[in-house]
Structures are given as structure tokens and as C-alpha cells.
Amino acid sequence: MSEIVGSKSETLSHGHDVHKHRDVQGAKLGMWLFLFTELLLFAGLFLVYATYRYFHPVQFHNAGLETHTLFGTINTMVLLTSSLTMVLSIGAMQRGKKWLAVTFLAGTILLGLIFLGIKYFEWTSEIREGLYPGSPALLNMSDGEILFWGLYYTMTGLHAVHVIVGMIILTFMLVFILTGTINQNDYIKLETAGLYWHLIDIIWIFLFPLFYLIN
């Protein structure tokens, strides 16, 4: 939740500034620092994951077999593709091709939506199998498996929240492009929003092998 306001105002604080020289470097520096905080937020979770996996290697392996590798792989590709459309959108803006940028950005948002859709089917199928925190089936399993599923829902859930936040930010950017606030001479907002979107992608790149590929 704080992420929304954080990143939004990050970019907003450069608004209403139509001069030629803006502190583009400063804006990017600030955004990168914010990305570090996001990275360390997830690092805490990865640390928890690493510790518990070290304590319960076999149980993590067994539980890992239950996740849907196919959904995971498709989702990885969807998110990677959305990163591509993101940079293409910035590239189009740099060249002053407004409508191309809009198309690519809309594509990015759409891919985010597809990612969440697949996530929804994945979670519902797992919940139907009785694998959710506090479920009777899960409480009968070993500690390691409870921890695996607890981490699975917490980490992919927090990631999904970030995807939603990212989509909201990108929607604002879409509006800004349409209103001309973002234009060929001033696209730093789009660029920093893009950085945020890529970070979400990077986090997923690590979540994917840790939850879907322990075969």
C-alpha cells in the first residue's frame, strides 16, 4: 500500500515542470534507492525461505512437487514479455512515437492482467486441493510442508500485490502520455515507472525456481 503512494509521488514530484533541464539523474537515483528498499523487503522473505529450506530440505522438495510448474513457466514468460513491451514503450516515447508508446504500455498492463489471471487459476486449484494456510489437509502435514506453503502464499501474494501496484502506476502513466504530460522531451516518469515494473519482474525471476522448480 505504501508502495503506491511512495512511487507515485516519486514520479509526481517532478510534475508541472516544463523546463528543459530537469534533474533526470536525481529522479532516477531516488527511484533506484526506492527499488533497493523493495529488494531488501523481499530479501527478508528470501532469507526466511533459505533458512527453512535448510532446516527441512526433504519436505520442501516434496511440497515443491505439488506446485504447478507449467503455470509458473508460462507466467514467467508473460512477465518477461511485459518487461519487453515496457522498454519498447519507453523507446517509442524517446523517438516521439506517442501512439506506439501507448500501444506498448497498454500491452504491458494487459500482460500484467494475464499474469494475475493465471495466478488466480493456480491459487484456486491449490485451494481446491486443500492446500491453503490453516487448512485441515495442510495441518496434517509436516512442519516443513506447512512452512513451504506458508511461504508460497506469502511471497507470491506479496509479489502479486506489487504487480497490482505496478499496473496502477502504469495506468497513470498511460493517462499522462495521453494528456501529453509525458512527451518526447520529458519521459522521466515513464522511465522510473518502468524501473519499478522491471523490479517486479526480477523478483519473480527468483521466486520461479524456488517454488516451481524443486523437482
Binding site: 518477461l80 522498454v87 518502468g194 524501473l195 522491471h198 526480477i202 525471476i205 527468483f206 520461479f208 525456481p209
Partner: peptide, 15 residues
């Protein structure tokens, strides 16, 4: 290692 390679590609080029 593969994940790190992918991440560094994203960081270096996309970002």
C-alpha cells in the same frame, strides 16, 4: 545461476 543471469540481463539492458 540461471536466475542471476536473467536478472543481470534485465538490470543491465532493460533497466
Amino acid at each position: 545461476v540461471i536466475a542471476l543471469t536473467k536478472a543481470s540481463l534485465v538490470v543491465n539492458i532493460f533497466m
